[in-house]
Simulated scan of single mutants.
Amino acid sequence: MEKIKRILLIGGPGSGKTTLIHAIEQAGYTVHHEISRMVTQRAQEQGIDQLFLEDPMAFSNELLKGRIEQFESASSGINFYDRGIPDVPAYHKFTDDPIPESYQDASEKYQYDAVFYLPPWKEIYQSDNERYESYDQAVTIGSILAHYYQDLKYEIIEVPKTSVEKRLEFILKHVSID
């Protein structure tokens, strides 16, 4: 049976994670897409404009549940994730909300094999209906995420600011199934 390997992409909003995860998927790898937009859109369909702002705990609980499901649904071989379980408590650090012990426990229980950090990149940053953060906030979030993962003893691999193709090549050079 082939081993399961979980590779995580992290970074602040607008750093190119989603574009890169699509390129990884196009290259034939298994990907687990970011679910925060889905949670936000589902809430908007129920009349809640920004669930993250209006009920941060409900939003976080939905994210944590979804990300644990993604983690557990990994198939054999290499699995790539657009954001991970520890992103949930890290965002609580950004909003200065208390971090439930269950969030910390989940972050320690579910371990990824490698974490790639996409740094803030002003030239590609865009806001939209689901991304309400300013660029400066995105920079702060990126820093908090990187530090939170480091506090969990992950080695963070920074992805260079270059073309999508070169970012993909960079990541694939660092990833192998043992």
Rank of each mutant, 00 (worst) to 15 (best):
M1D: 08
K3L: 14
I4K: 15
I4H: 07
I4S: 06
I7L: 05
I7F: 03
L9K: 08
L9R: 07
L9G: 04
G11F: 06
G11P: 04
G12R: 04
P13W: 04
G16F: 02
G16K: 04
K17R: 11
T19W: 08
I21S: 08
I21L: 13
I21C: 04
H22G: 01
H22E: 15
E25Q: 15
A27L: 09
G28M: 05
G28H: 02
H32P: 02
H33E: 11
E34I: 01
R37H: 07
R37N: 02
E45Y: 05
I48M: 01
D49K: 10
D49T: 12
Q50T: 09
F52S: 08
F52A: 15
F52W: 04
L53W: 01
E54P: 12
M57N: 12
F59R: 01
F59E: 10
S60M: 01
S60I: 03
N61T: 04
E62P: 02
L64K: 08
L64T: 14
R67F: 03
I68P: 02
E69D: 15
Q70K: 05
F71G: 01
E72V: 13
S73R: 09
A74M: 07
S75P: 03
S76D: 14
S76G: 05
I78C: 06
F80D: 01
Y81G: 06
Y81S: 13
R83K: 12
G84D: 06
A90W: 00
Y91W: 02
H92T: 00
K93R: 15
K93E: 11
F94W: 05
I99T: 11
I99K: 09
I99R: 05
P100E: 01
E101M: 10
Q104K: 13
A106L: 10
S107G: 05
S107R: 09
S107I: 01
E108M: 09
E108Y: 00
A114K: 11
F116A: 01
P119D: 11
P120K: 06
W121E: 05
W121I: 02
W121Y: 06
K122R: 14
K122G: 06
Y125I: 04
D128P: 09
E130M: 03
E130P: 07
E130H: 10
E133G: 06
S134N: 08
D136G: 04
Q137E: 15
V139Y: 12
V139A: 09
I141S: 13
S143I: 14
A146C: 13
Y148F: 13
Y149P: 02
D151L: 07
L152R: 04
L152H: 12
Y154E: 03
Y154L: 03
E155A: 10
I156M: 00
E158N: 06
P160A: 14
P160K: 12
K161N: 10
K161F: 04
T162Y: 06
T162I: 13
S163L: 10
K166W: 00
K166I: 02
K166L: 09
E169W: 01
F170N: 12
I171Y: 11
H174S: 09
I177A: 11
